[in-house]
């Protein structure tokens, strides 16, 4: 398509964007960094992210049930797609981990990958467009459940003052709109749980492969210090001890990094879509939705491939780095 024939589209798009920016006033975006409570079952508070993750679970279950209901020797359609997905993930895992551990490494990260992909796409296609569909709740209710005892009056008063200006979309003043849907991965609890499961499995695999002593030996390295003769050896041994302790610390930093990476990417994507929609209501946000789909898939893939890579690191003992390669 040359410039001359595409010019009407460009001009039309610009006109739509300018008219949208001038004449359609969007309400200020509702941005909450934590998932908001929708309702409660007994003592359990169900947030909108948890509710959405149930929907995602049901969707995944139905999809795989439909795909594998009538298994055929020569797959076609849905079964073909699912087999391609699972086989691709399996081969990728085998490429990183080697054929000995692949059946153990494959299961949980691949499950998390599918779950996180569907969660992220749910956020882009349902969570953000329907972010104005929800119930009006007075902030007292939510805060009273979260606050403890004497702080109740203070926090309730404060949040009321803070939220009066964000009460658009037909809610009473002093009430706040709680959307029904929010991407599950835009909740730090969700991503932290996935990260903790991943890292706990890495420790389990490390103990399975190296034994408890061998696994701990990666973090508490005293052998060089014990056999030291002279000042230089002692200094090298101390450095080894320090490196081991850093390694131990990084095992816990990995959990934080995992959870913040997924949460930050998805939550920032949602905030960006909402803010761009607020600034320029029409058309400009469309390519960014495509970008967010890309980011969602890439982040799920990164979560998957990093967990497999960390499992590989965990089963590699201290000192046998050379034979591993």
């Amino acid at each position: 398509m040359n410039l001359k024939s595409s010019l009407p589209y460009i001009i039309g798009g610009l006109i739509v964007a300018v008219v949208g920016a001038l004449f359609i006033k969007m309400p200020a975006p509702l941005i909450s960094i934590k998932a908001e409570p929708l309702f409660s079952i007994g003592p359990l508070t169900v947030t909108n992210s948890l509710f959405s993750s149930w929907i995602v679970t049901v969707v995944i279950f139905l999809f795989f049930f439909m795909a594998t209901r009538k298994l055929e020797y020569m797959p076609g359609g849905l079964q073909n797609f699912v087999e391609m997905l699972v086989e691709g993930l399996y081969n990728l895992t085998e490429g990183v981990s080697g054929s000995q551990w692949v059946s153990k490494f494959f299961l949980v990260p691949a499950t998390i990958f599918i779950f996180v992909v569907v969660s992220n796409l749910f956020g882009v296609f349902i969570g953000v467009p329907l972010s104005a569909v929800g119930v009006c709740e007075s902030p007292h209710h939510g805060e009273a459940a979260a606050a403890e005892g004497g702080h109740e009056a203070d926090t309730g008063h404060e949040t009321e003052a803070a939220t009066t200006e964000r009460a658009p979309l037909g809610c009473e003043p002093g009430q706040v709109l709680v959307p029904f849907f929010r991407a599950p991965s835009a909740d730090l609890n969700f991503t932290f749980a996935l990260a903790f499961i991943t890292q706990a499995m890495a420790w389990t695999f490390g103990i399975m492969a190296l034994g408890l002593g061998g696994f701990m030996g990666k973090f508490f390295i005293f052998d060089k210090l014990r056999s030291a003769k002279g000042g230089g050896d002692i200094a090298m041994g101390l450095i080894d001890v320090f490196v081991g302790l850093l390694e131990l610390l990084s095992e816990f930093v990995k959990i934080v990094a995992f959870s913040f990476r997924l949460f930050g990417n998805i939550f920032a994507g949602e905030v960006m879509l909402l803010v761009i929609t607020f600034l320029v209501p029409l058309l400009i946000v469309t390519p960014l939705i495509g970008f967010e789909v890309f980011v969602g898939i890439i982040q799920a893939f990164v979560f998957y491939i990093l967990s497999v890579a960390f499992y590989k690191v965990a089963i590699t003992g201290h000192g046998d780095h050379d034979e591993a390669h």
């Binding site: 990094a257 913040f260 930050g264």
Partner: peptide, 10 residues
């Protein structure tokens, strides 16, 4: 970068 982003969002 995501750590910086989370800090600024907080």
């Amino acid at each position: 970068a995501i750590f910086g982003l989370v800090v600024s969002l907080i």
